[in-house]
């Protein structure tokens, strides 16, 4: 029979290997330079009021995104805020609601486009991306399904 300490050593090695693979794989996550992506150096914060909501395809072969137009409270400057795929939100946004947005600003022509990372809304903080801009909605579709049928 295999000694107990040996079996434990094998398990520990397997766990270390797993963590190594996971950590290593995480390192391959990279941005595609030609694509529209989250730039952490251009991060801004603002509070505002929702003026318009649409669902619009942005990325090829991906679900349409929820896009909201927000007027900043202090300056009344208008931002187009890209939130996430529409299925991610069970939160329902309406015109006139106030919220606080943290995200990366890209100026395209006269359009101030913000890729949202975090939204404070009705006493909740919705984390759309992590601080490096990686989407937080991935892997969560099963949760949506459970909520809807539960």
């Amino acid at each position: 029979m295999e000694p107990l300490f040996r079996r434990k050593t094998v398990r520990v090695k397997a766990l270390v290997l797993l963590l190594f693979i996971l950590t290593g794989s995480h390192g391959i996550a990279t941005a595609q330079p030609d694509k529209h992506f989250y730039n952490v150096d251009n991060e801004i914060n603002f509070s505002g009021t929702i003026k318009k909501i649409i669902m619009q395809p942005i990325y090829e072969d991906r679900s349409p995104f929820l896009i909201i137009t927000v007027a900043e409270k202090k300056t009344n400057k208008t931002y187009t805020v890209e939130l996430s795929p529409t299925w991610f939100f069970e939160k329902d946004f309406h015109q006139g609601e106030s919220l606080h947005v943290t995200g990366s600003l890209t100026v395209k022509g006269e359009k101030n486009l913000v890729i949202a990372r975090m939204v404070k809304f009705k006493g909740e903080m919705i984390v759309v991306r992590d601080k490096h801009g990686f989407p937080n909605w991935r892997g969560r579709r099963w949760q949506k399904r459970r909520r809807e049928i539960g």
Binding site: L22, S25, H26, I28, A29, T30, A31, Q32, K35, H36, F37, Y38, Y59, R62, D130, H132, G133, F134, P135, N136, R138, G139
Partner: peptide
């Protein structure tokens, strides 16, 4: 704990 792979959109 969230881990992300692939490209950053």
């Amino acid at each position: 704990w969230n881990l992300f792979f692939g490209e950053r959109q």
